[in-house]
Design a binder for these strands. Structure first.
Lengths: 151, 151
DNA sequence: CAATATTTTCAGTAATTATTGAAATATATG
DNA sequence: CATATATTTCAATAATTACTGAAAATATTG
């Protein structure tokens, strides 16, 4: 792998890092995104990223669990191959949107906690709740439209 | 502060942690969200969260920088007070949406890197780029509608 | 401008999280 | 079913990130 590509993978890793996810997750997804052919074995991933087998195993498992990567096996071959799952980025977004519900619920729990305290004290939590209620209502349509146009 | 509230703040902290942000950020924002009156001095924050002054200073700075919290001073008082900025959650979302541009650019950079390689190899990056182009186009309208209805 | 109160900075430390590598487990082949 | 190959698990370690606390800087009062 040439230097430009390694640098690109590091960028991919950092992008995921900013997100609070392990860099290795981004690096592995990055390799798969630029692979030609578009699939790689665990061994190839380990070699290209100078990472341990264990780390690749853990990372591919996470990526599969997150719905971003597919594992494939071929008849007559022992090793498995990994490839980016079509719709991976949509899936990332879909999961983020699911997380909105957690924010709304946290706001609601806070309002219960405050009870009938001074309305001033409740205002921030009410705004938070209303905001996430709004987004939970709006997001599905945007996601669905993408799926209809492209999925 | 009673136990139920401390537990709630810890929850707030964990919610931010999932996001890849320091828990302390969530805890401090949490205190301010449930404060009555809705503002607190650095000293009060440090005491309520059993955290160091330095940590509170760093955290309030971050929260202000992120556009989530306001610093206020009062005439005749030396200490500053902090309160949740109205529209804080909208601001969080707005920043996330800005980050979409970085994803699109990363995809574009990858496509440059691949050049005219096998279309199969380019497919994942093209899908990534198209996806983020779509979201960059769609999100602003949703954000603006909230502002119009509520801001 | 001296005295006091408050905030910030930052080096050191603590806590957390990511990664390795070797052993254990699983899977495919002849 | 023995052998070879591939993958997973997990304890140990490395790397990173968060937090403290004391010293320095800043701001306010009389």
């Amino acid at each position: 792998m040439d230097e430009a590509r390694l640098k690109y993978l590091e960028e991919f890793g950092l992008m995921f890092g900013q997100f609070g996810l392990p860099r290795m997750l981004g690096r592995v997804l990055g390799v798969l995104m630029i692979s030609d052919p578009p699939e790689r074995s665990a061994e190839e991933l380990a070699e290209e990223l100078a990472a341990s087998r264990g780390s690749i195993s853990q990372t591919t498992r996470s990526l599969i669990q997150m719905g971003l990567v597919q594992r494939r096996s071929k008849p007559g071959e022992r090793r498995d191959y990994f490839r980016v799952k079509p719709g991976a980025w949509h899936e990332i977004m879909r999961r983020e949107m699911e997380a909105l519900g957690a924010f709304r619920k946290t706001a609601e729990r806070g309002l219960e906690l405050l009870g009938s305290e001074d309305p001033d004290a409740r205002r921030s939590l009410e705004e938070m709740r209303d905001f996430y209620v709004y987004w939970e209502r709006e997001m599905p349509a945007v996601l669905e439209r993408w799926e209809k146009e492209r999925g």
